[in-house]
């Protein structure tokens, strides 16, 4: 599949570039634009970002690899990032993770066959007072999870 930015994307990219004295700082935000558009930043998307910004492909690749929020391959429609770090661990984060593994029939790091859900274990999301919690596809936080709440969430998506 050939990846292309839309006109709106390109306008947004121009706005991003205007924030900085050089082009390189646009790398992270433009990778976000790309991920929002295509759902991931696989090597082809990384190439598109590099070409659009006129930066070396190796640079864009290195950045994409360094940061965990960039999906280097296609993911499920909903990515559930369950926090099991310190406060979430203490408040039952692993129970939630295991419960979701059972419910979805996959292990952490995997995607359901129908492509609906990917499940991950993640590090502290800065919501420790709302533990245990998870984040949906790099966006909405779901706080104070219980097994029932996790079930409802999956069923509602």
């Amino acid at each position: 599949m050939a990846y292309e930015f839309t006109k709106e994307d390109l306008e947004e990219i121009e706005k991003i570039k205007a924030k900085f004295p050089e082009v390189m700082p646009a790398t992270l935000p433009v990778l976000w634009v790309a991920q929002n558009r295509f759902g991931h930043v696989n090597p082809d998307v990384q190439r598109l970002v590099a070409e659009t910004l006129d930066l070396p492909e190796a640079h864009v690749h290195g950045v994409a690899e360094f940061y965990t929020q960039y999906y280097k391959e296609e993911k499920g429609k909903f990515v559930l990032d369950v926090c099991t770090c310190l406060s979430c661990q203490l408040c039952g984060g692993y129970d939630i993770l295991e419960h979701l593994e059972d419910k979805l029939g996959i292990k952490k790091g995997e995607t359901t066959d129908d492509g609906m859900f990917s499940l991950n274990e993640v590090e502290c999301l800065g919501a420790c007072g709302y533990a245990p919690m998870l984040q949906i596809t790099n966006d909405t936080y779901v706080n104070h999870l219980t097994k029932e709440k996790a079930d409802q969430l999956v069923d509602s998506l």
Binding site: K19, E22, A26, L28, W32, Y67, T68, Q69
Partner: peptide, 23 residues
């Protein structure tokens, strides 16, 4: 501007590298 998932970027000089568009 936003990060993209890396605890180390809270360390101030790491944050500067990230702001400059690098690892």
């Amino acid at each position: 501007t936003g990060g993209a998932g890396a605890y180390i970027c809270g360390e101030e000089t790491s944050m500067l590298e990230s702001l400059e568009g690098k690892r």
